[in-house]
């Protein structure tokens, strides 16, 4: 009964939205942000337009977005009751995984570094690199490589907020030097973006890994 009603409503919504989507796709908005981004790209300090939008033109969105990630990380820590205790039952004893991890973890660290560097001129950037970093951490944890540093504690708190803090400081310096909040000094925007992205990569990796660790709590409940 309920399934039927919901299906009918969903079909109805789809029927209303489909013509709207078609109409929007065929309309011409006239102004195009795309060309605007291209003309100002040089002043942004990076060569890749997506990175320019993320870390310069619309950096405020990104600052708040990292804030959202940090909030998720904080809540994860606040709910984690497992402490620093390593959880042997979550560890895999698969020998193949162990052998692979030895190869993969260093490779993934390299890949993360490359993704970070690539972000300035081609698709890539802090988030992709941070996600790969976190994946490497998950692999380490699964195979029992030392990961005590990721347990809730001062290290994790510092690590997950480092990228956000530096981003925020740079933003404030922009206002203090008489330009605007989040405005980079003219010649330093390229290097500053790289510094911010590097620290963001580390923080994003730690937040994602920290959330992974926080979710896997075992208080002796049944499995």
């Amino acid at each position: 009964m309920k399934a039927g009603v919901v299906t009918v409503l969903a079909l109805l919504l789809g029927g209303i939205l489909a013509p709207v989507v078609v109409a929007v796709a065929s309309a011409d908005p006239g102004t195009s942000l795309h060309t605007l981004v291209q003309t100002r790209l040089e002043a942004s300090g990076v060569e890749h337009p997506v990175t320019a939008v993320l870390l310069n033109f619309r950096a405020y969105d990104t600052l708040l977005e990292i804030g959202v990630l940090v909030v998720a990380g904080i809540t994860g820590m606040s709910l984690s009751r497992a402490g620093a205790r390593a959880e042997p039952e979550l560890r895999s004893t698969n020998t193949l995984l162990h052998a692979l991890a030895r190869w993969f973890v260093p490779l993934m660290l390299l890949l993360a570094a490359w993704l970070l560097w690539a972000g300035s001129h081609r698709p890539g950037g802090a988030f992709q690199a941070g996600a790969v970093l976190a994946a490497a951490g998950v692999m380490m944890r699964l195979t029992g490589l030392p990961t005590a540093w990721i347990a809730p504690g001062p290290m994790l708190r510092l690590g997950l907020s480092a990228g956000f803090s530096v981003f925020l400081l740079v933003a404030a310096v922009g206002a203090l030097t008489g330009r605007a909040f989040l405005a980079y000094p003219p010649l330093l925007s390229g290097p500053l973006i790289l510094v911010i992205e590097t620290l963001l990569t580390l923080s994003i990796g730690m937040i994602l890994l920290g959330l992974y660790v926080a979710a896997a709590q075992r208080d002796g409940a049944d499995e």
Partner: peptide, 8 residues
């Protein structure tokens, strides 16, 4: 913000 006028 960032001295970039909307819409950019």
């Amino acid at each position: 913000l960032g001295d970039w006028q909307p819409p950019l």
